[in-house]
C-alpha cells in the first residue's frame, strides 16, 4: 500500500513545489516507485521545476473528468524511471477538483506506486484541503519568519481535524517540519527565527533544515530538482530529509554558520 505524502504550508512562496520535486526525486532515486501530483490547478508550476513542461498532454483535471486515463496523463521522468509526474491543469481552477475524483485518482495510484507526493497549493481553500485530505504523512514547509510559522500552525490544525484519517477516527496524519530558506547568518543577526524558536512555536518533529541557497533558484530555472545537484548544500539537505524520512538516522546540518563545529553548536549562548 502506498504512502500518500502531502507537502503543504498554508503560506505561498515558502518552497512547497521545490520540496515536492526534490523529495519525489529523492524517493525515486532510492528505488521506490514514486508519483508526484501538482494540485495547484490554475497555477501549474511543478512541471517547470521537474523540467517536463514540454511533455504535458493530459493533466489531473482530465483524469478526474474521465477525459484521459491515468497512464496517459502520467509523465515518466527522463532521469529516473521510477518517477512519474501528474501535472495540474493551467486552464481550469480549483473548483474542477472533487473529493471523489481526487480519491479515485489517489486510489488508483496507490495500487501501482510506493509513494505518492501531493504538491499542495498555498492557502487553506479547496485545492489545499483536497491535497491533504487523503494524506498519510504531511511535510509542513515553513520559512523561519512569523507569518509563515503561524500559517503552518493553522495548516497543522486543519491536518488534525479535516483529513480523511481525522474524520474516520484513524491514526492521525504524521506531521513533519521542514524548515526551508534557512540562513544561520541572519538568525545570528536576529533577522530570522532560529530552529529552536520555530520548533518551540510549532512543537513538531524536525525532518530537516534546508539552507537558503542559490542552487535552489538555479535548479528551478533549469528544471532540475535541486536534490540532483549533489554538490549544493540544499541538494544535500534534501538528500538528508529523504533518508531521515525513510528511517535513516542522520545528524542535522546547515543549522549553524559555516566553519562552526559541534562545540560551537553545543555551547552557543542564547
Amino acid at each position: 500500500m502506498a504512502r500518500i505524502i502531502v507537502v503543504t504550508s498554508g503560506k505561498g512562496g515558502v518552497g512547497k513545489t521545490t520540496t515536492s520535486a526534490a523529495i519525489a526525486m529523492g524517493l525515486a532515486k532510492k528505488g521506490h516507485k514514486t508519483a508526484v501530483i501538482d494540485f495547484d490547478v490554475g497555477l501549474r508550476n511543478l512541471d517547470l521545476v521537474m523540467g517536463c513542461e514540454r511533455r504535458v498532454v493530459y493533466d489531473l483535471v482530465n483524469v478526474i473528468n474521465g477525459e484521459a486515463a491515468l497512464n496517459q496523463a502520467l509523465i515518466r521522468d527522463k532521469r529516473c524511471n521510477q518517477l512519474y509526474i501528474l501535472p495540474a491543469s493551467q486552464t481550469r481552477d480549483k473548483e474542477a477538483l472533487t473529493i471523489e475524483g481526487v480519491g479515485k485518482v489517489l486510489e488508483e495510484l496507490a495500487k501501482e506506486f510506493k509513494y505518492v507526493v501531493c504538491d499542495s497549493p498555498a492557502g487553506i481553500e479547496k485545492g489545499a484541503t483536497l491535497a491533504m485530505y487523503f494524506a498519510d504523512d504531511a511535510f509542513v514547509v515553513t520559512n523561519p519568519e512569523v507569518s509563515s510559522v503561524r500559517d503552518s500552525d493553522r495548516m497543522l490544525g486543519i491536518l488534525a481535524s479535516k483529513s480523511k484519517r481525522a474524520e474516520n477516527n484513524e491514526e492521525p496524519i504524521k506531521e513533519y517540519l521542514l524548515l526551508t530558506r534557512y540562513s544561520p547568518d541572519r538568525v545570528k543577526l536576529g533577522e530570522m527565527l532560529s530552529v529552536e524558536d520555530v520548533q518551540e512555536i510549532l512543537s513538531l518533529h524536525l525532518l530537516g533544515v534546508i539552507p537558503e541557497s542559490k542552487s535552489v533558484l538555479n535548479a528551478s530555472n533549469s528544471g532540475i530538482p535541486v536534490i540532483l545537484d549533489e554538490k549544493s548544500d540544499a541538494g544535500q539537505a534534501y538528500d538528508d530529509v529523504v533518508a531521515r524520512y525513510l528511517g535513516e538516522d542522520r545528524p542535522h546540518r546547515f543549522i549553524d554558520e559555516e566553519k562552526k563545529g559541534l562545540f560551537g553548536k553545543l555551547f552557543r549562548s542564547k
Binding site: 500552525d153 490544525g157 486543519i158 512555536i201
Partner: peptide, 24 residues
C-alpha cells in the same frame, strides 16, 4: 494535542489542555 491556530475548543465544564495553545 496542541491547539493550533484557527482552532476553537469549547468545554461545558473545565478545560484542561496538556499541550500548547497556539497564537490565533
Amino acid at each position: 494535542n496542541p491547539v493550533r491556530s484557527g482552532q476553537r475548543i469549547y468545554a461545558h465544564g473545565d478545560l484542561i489542555v496538556l499541550s500548547q495553545v497556539s497564537a490565533g
